[in-house]
Amino acid sequence: METAFTPVASTLGGALIGLAAVMLMALRGRIFGATGLVAGLLRPASRGDFAWRALLLAGMVTGPLVYRLLFGTPMELTVPVGPLALVLGGLLVGIGVTYGSGCTSGHGVCGLARLSPRSLVAVPVFMASTAATVFVVRHVLGA
């Protein structure tokens, strides 16, 4: 399925993601990583630790609503795969980001921005394995 090429919206959205990462660093001195956020909610270091993570997450889920208020249309979300792929993919992502200590936000944005040597390895590895997986799923298995 084709999707529209959106360089302006994507750059702008990316800049906002970056702004949020900078805000969290300025306010709390923390990396903005979705993996670390969820891991910290599952096993918080303290009540205060749980509270700020929960607030951050609460803010995050308002994204689609704010988008709708700003643009008058719901954000685009098309899921081209079935429930089995979502569960299998979700499990693999969960296991992978826990062992890999981060995902697209923690390694891909924050880690690369501060030239973390671990992120400089992690990002090309997961980008390559995602591309390889998509190739196999779409062009070898023909899903």
């Binding site: 993601i17 990583g33 979705a34 993996t35 956020l37 969820v38 997450l57 995050m60 889920v61 308002t62 994204g63 689609p64 609503l65 719901p74 954000m75 979300l77 899921v79 081209p80 795969v81 792929a85 979502l86 299998l88 993919g89 979700g90 499990l91 693999l92 992502v93 969960g94 296991i95 992978g96 980001v97 826990t98 062992y99 890999g100 200590s101 995902c103 697209t104 936000s105 390694h107 671990r118 390895v121 992690a122 990002v123 590895v125 997961f126 980008m127 390559a128 394995s129 995602t130 591309a131 390889a132 997986t133 998509v134 799923v137």
Partner: peptide, 28 residues
């Protein structure tokens, strides 16, 4: 680090969601 990241990529390719994309999308 390397194996975990590779596994993450496989899951991302299968499902199309990464954690940072999925959490805000819960709002839909």
């Amino acid at each position: 680090l390397v194996g975990g990241s590779a596994l993450f990529g496989v899951g991302w390719g299968i499902a199309g969601f990464c954690p940072g994309g999925a959490l805000p999308a819960l709002g839909t």
